[in-house]
Design a binder for these strands. Structure first.
Lengths: 190, 190
DNA sequence: TGTACATCAGTGAACGCGCGTTCACTGATGTAC
DNA sequence: TGTACATCAGTGAACGCGCGTTCACTGATGTAC
């Protein structure tokens, strides 16, 4: 049955929120639209009133997943090295490692996104470029800021991915990966 | 019908080779056993004579995917900085970026492996530890070699993943990611 | 403000399809004599 | 070396299941009068 416009908008947001969490946790191919809609309190049929296809849905869910992290990094003032170190510490924390469904969409979905062509890949690429720009703005100015931003993002994402992959089978290795990268980025141990 | 033992062993290898390529390219959830068996010139039923389940099959395919890279890095003599730089150059080349199905299984499958518990996750973890050890052995000895090995692997894997994710939508960004990480690792541009 | 009705968000059955796995069967291999 | 036959690697139909997507239908919303 029809619902109010406010309710419909709220339902759309619930669909995106559920998808952004479940896709990060299980990958784009690891969870079906029916299960996501159920998690959002709706039925799968309703999805196609809001989104053109699973691919477009996944792309919007991916964009939604970027909001939180970009906001967090955006709050760091340019030149505030302590605040930036705090961001690194959070990114490379066990808490972030263990909370895939609420964490960085690059670490969770970049490999998946690289396999798709279409809206998902474009959204991921825009997200990566956004992070590179945010780091560039926040680093002390020198001739290689953008390069440094790229290597920093590579270390963060790479370190988190490796730490997650080894967490279940080798807790010590997983932990060492986090602290090694954190130290290399010049931040003290948490 | 029955085949000779030699042929059976050859078929098993063909199944692993096809799986290691197709899983790297499409992910563990992105391709079915029937398609892989077809690629290997067999039917899907034959799989279960060689492997216990898809998960065990995937784990062996993953282990198979590690062989080439580990061999390549193993050929680098300890202390031979030029040879090590050559390895970095290859790892961060456009050729490696564009050849996922023949490339590093960590960059291709670590995120997928982190989502599975069971033999696949264990194989991936062992592969990561192997790479860390190989780098550790090949770096000039100082008190933080293992930490340096971990940050190096994080940068390589992270940089390659980001470069692949952005390749289709932003070729310039994808290229800059490779060269930035390569320079940060102290290797000259190719 | 009250009533009649067009709109349309959401429902759930149905579609064709591919998934992982099983198993009765086939027929070449390779062993026993 | 030649023959009879047990072994077993590989085949392909079949299983139940979940996938993405469509669509006739429902019934509350919100508009026109």
């Amino acid at each position: 049955m029809k619902v109010s416009k406010e309710q419909a908008e709220q339902n759309r947001k619930a669909l995106l929120e559920a998808a952004s969490r479940l896709y990060r946790e299980h990958g784009f191919d690891g969870v079906g639209v029916a299960q996501i809609a159920r998690e959002a309190g709706l039925t799968h049929g309703s999805l196609y009133g809001h989104f053109q296809s699973k691919d477009h849905y996944a792309a919007e869910a991916c964009a939604h997943a970027f909001v939180k992290g970009v906001e967090l990094l955006g709050q760091v003032e340019a030149g505030d090295d302590a605040a930036l170190a705090g961001f690194f510490q959070h990114y490379l924390s066990e808490a972030h490692r263990d909370a895939v469904s609420d964490g960085c969409p690059i670490a969770a979905l970049a490999t998946d996104a690289a396999r798709k062509d279409g809206p998902v890949g474009e959204t991921m690429t825009r997200g990566i470029e956004t992070y590179v720009e945010l780091f560039t703005e926040r680093f002390a100015k020198d001739e290689n800021v953008r390069e440094r931003a790229m290597t920093t993002l590579s270390m963060l994402v790479g370190g988190l991915i490796l730490s997650r992959a080894s967490a279940a089978s080798n807790a010590a290795l997983s932990q060492q990966l986090l602290t090694s990268v954190l130290q290399a980025l010049g931040a003290p141990r948490a």
